[in-house]
């Protein structure tokens, strides 16, 4: 999205004046040009940040640099509720600073705008649900986008209870086991959307395709080995979870998962000696020995904003991801 097509109108406000100030901003924006209000969902983002002082205005440019929020809501217009939370604080209190903004996008003849509410909270975690609940619009679905590492900062139950969808990126996990265990209370209640899981889609489809041509039953008995690039451990374990669920592996069946420092591939899977599927940023290469020709599946180029927006749009639950997570939970909590 060309930068020139984005405009921001911001103002610092108080917890009690959020809605009136947003209404005033809409009027001001509307006086300058025709702007349609757009809102498909509530998008709640909670992230850890040091506390701001009361009355501090929000630096919108800094947020835009840090997060791809503008790009996400340009693609999937949402009311953004961004909570910058300082977890060190133990006192329950009102937010230390609040700012509201209208961000407008699009060409002059079809301009649309979305609302952003940024809350700087220097209060105990138990205060957060009441703040978010006040700001949600009830007539549209609510998605929580967890931008922190879930394995280190698991979400508050009171916050996810308000959501229909939980969007996260397992690629951020420093500890895959910890990340999976953090999903234990979520995966049955909410629609999970893992941005990292999207990256596996071409690989999964390529494998399904390859198995469609070969004899799947003999593959079931073969040893599976997964090699991944550094920082792609979560991707590898997601494959394990998916295969465990689909091939009904018991806890005993354990594929080998190894990290390779010098691999060109993000991840590659070998099933016995017959089948290999290797994923890099551009393609999945499937090689088969003796049971058919090799083939390539291309990988779409998708930035974070595209991926998050696409997940927000999907909304319905992804049975494959849920089953994969369930299988990993069984494996990791055994």
């Amino acid at each position: 999205m060309a930068q020139s097509l984005i405009d921001r109108a911001w103002r610092a406000t108080t917890p009690d004046e959020i809605e009136p100030d947003l209404a005033a901003l809409w009027r001001e924006v509307g006086q300058q040009r025709r702007v349609a209000r757009a809102v498909l969902s509530n998008l709640v983002v909670v992230r850890e940040r040091p506390a701001a002082r009361a009355g501090d205005a929000v630096n919108a440019d800094e947020i835009a640099k840090d997060l791809t929020l503008d790009e996400v809501v340009a693609r999937h217009p949402s009311r953004v509720i961004l909570i910058q939370h300082n977890p060190a604080t133990q006192t329950a209190c009102a937010p230390s600073a609040v700012s509201v903004g209208i961000i407008t996008f699009g060409p002059p003849h079809a301009r649309y705008g979305v609302e952003q509410i940024v809350v700087q909270s220097a209060c105990a975690e138990q205060s957060l649900p009441s703040i978010i609940r006040r700001l949600l619009r009830g007539d549209v679905p609510t998605s929580v986008w967890w931008t922190d590492d879930l394995s280190e900062a698991p979400p508050l139950d009171g916050i996810v209870a308000m959501a229909r969808q939980f969007v996260y990126d397992s690629r951020r996990w420093r500890d895959v086991r910890g990340g999976v265990l953090a999903l234990a209370t979520l995966h049955r209640r909410l629609d999970l959307a893992d941005v990292n899981w999207r990256r596996l889609t071409p690989l999964r489809h390529a494998l399904i395709h390859a198995c469609g041509a070969a004899d799947a039953d003999h593959l079931r008995r073969a040893n599976v080995e997964i090699v991944h690039r550094a920082a792609e451990g979560a991707l590898a374990w997601l494959v394990v979870g998916w295969l465990s669920a689909r091939l009904e592996w018991g806890g005993g069946a354990s594929p080998r998962v190894a990290e390779s420092r010098d691999s060109n591939e993000l991840i590659s899977i070998s099933v016995g000696t017959d089948l290999t599927a290797a994923l890099n940023e551009h393609r999945v290469l499937v090689t088969r020995r003796g049971s058919g020709p090799s083939f390539t599946v291309s990988v779409p180029h998708e930035g974070e904003a595209d991926a998050v927006a696409a997940e927000l749009r999907n909304l319905g639950h992804d049975a494959c991801l849920r089953d994969a997570v369930t299988a990993l939970l069984a494996r990791f909590s055994a």
């Binding site: 809605e19 809409w26 509307g30 209000r37 809102v39 007539d139 749009r313």
Partner: peptide, 30 residues
């Protein structure tokens, strides 16, 4: 924020048929 809204299901643009609940929203103020 007086007004009214009608929630309807709409197809998400793209090759597959996926449906999303959208709002036709009217605000008195603006």
């Amino acid at each position: 924020d007086e007004g009214f809204a009608l929630g309807i299901s709409s197809k998400i643009p793209g090759p597959r048929v996926r449906v999303y609940p959208v709002q036709m929203d009217f605000h008195y103020g603006s």
